[in-house]
C-alpha cells in the first residue's frame, strides 16, 4: 500500500497530475451545472412574474 502511494519516487508528480485531472473537470462540471440552475431559476422567475401577457409576446421571438 505504501509502495502504491510512493509511485517509485515520483509521488509528487503522479499524484499532482491525478489531482488536477479530477479537480479541473470537476470544477468545470460544477460551474456548468450551477450556471444551468441559475438560468433555469431566472426563466422561472421571469415567466411567473410576467404572467400570460408577456409570455405570449415573447413566443414569436423565441422561435427565431
Amino acid at each position: 500500500m505504501e509502495e502504491f502511494f510512493h509511485m517509485g519516487g515520483y509521488a509528487a508528480y503522479v499524484w499532482t497530475v491525478y489531482a488536477l485531472g479530477v479537480v479541473v473537470p470537476l470544477a468545470l462540471a460544477v460551474h456548468s451545472i450551477a450556471d444551468y440552475g441559475r438560468q433555469a431559476r431566472l426563466v422561472e422567475a421571469l415567466e411567473s412574474e410576467a404572467g400570460g401577457r408577456i409570455r405570449r409576446a415573447a413566443r414569436p421571438e423565441q422561435d427565431r
Partner: peptide, 10 residues
C-alpha cells in the same frame, strides 16, 4: 437566450 428574450419583452 430565453432569459434575454423575456427581459426584452418585459
Amino acid at each position: 437566450h430565453r432569459v434575454r428574450t423575456l427581459r426584452l419583452a418585459r
